[in-house]
């Protein structure tokens, strides 16, 4: 069936089954590969995108639920990769392999949107759904604090 979704301000009409996870609609049908597959069960956060501004695990979110909504992926977070979170990520050389970082950045951006000055505990709580197997956690915390205007 055809489902109409706005992804990064562009309207897509996707010919997909309604139960297809948003992740695969974004990657395989819309052709945007910045959003990653890590677990398929909303356990790792690699697939995090925003739906109407809210972070969701797109691997476990049916595409039909996104119909008529605004989806933002890592490719659409900023025009030139200059969202404060992205800038902070580069300033601190946060990524190692980089694979989980799309999801980390999307979760962090959503956190700062609703809480511009999170405490360390609030950062940990918001980010605990995003796994980084390379272990960049201490830099992720510092980068979020930096993006929030702290001194990290």
């Amino acid at each position: 069936m055809a489902i109409e979704i706005t992804i990064n301000d562009t309207t897509h009409t996707l010919d997909v089954e309604p139960d297809m996870p948003l992740l695969w609609a974004i990657r395989d049908v819309a052709g945007l590969t910045g959003t990653k597959f890590g677990c398929g069960k909303a356990l790792c956060g690699a697939c995090t995108v925003h739906v109407d501004g809210q972070p969701v695990r797109s691997c476990s979110y049916p595409v039909s639920a996104a119909a008529g909504r605004n989806v933002t992926t890592i490719e659409g977070l900023s025009a030139d990769g200059d969202h404060p979170v992205q800038v902070a990520w580069r300033a601190l050389n946060v990524p190692q392999c980089g694979y989980c970082q799309s999801g980390q950045i999307m979760t962090a951006a959503a956190l700062l949107e609703r809480n511009p000055a999170p405490t360390r505990a609030e950062i940990d709580a918001a980010m605990s759904g995003n796994i980084c197997r390379c272990g960049t956690y201490t830099r992720i915390r510092a980068a979020i604090e930096r993006a929030a205007g702290g001194d990290s």
């Binding site: 959003t35 977070l77 990520w89 980089g98």
Partner: peptide, 8 residues
């Protein structure tokens, strides 16, 4: 690869 890794 810092730019590419932070922009998808």
């Amino acid at each position: 690869d810092g730019y590419e890794m932070t922009t998808g």
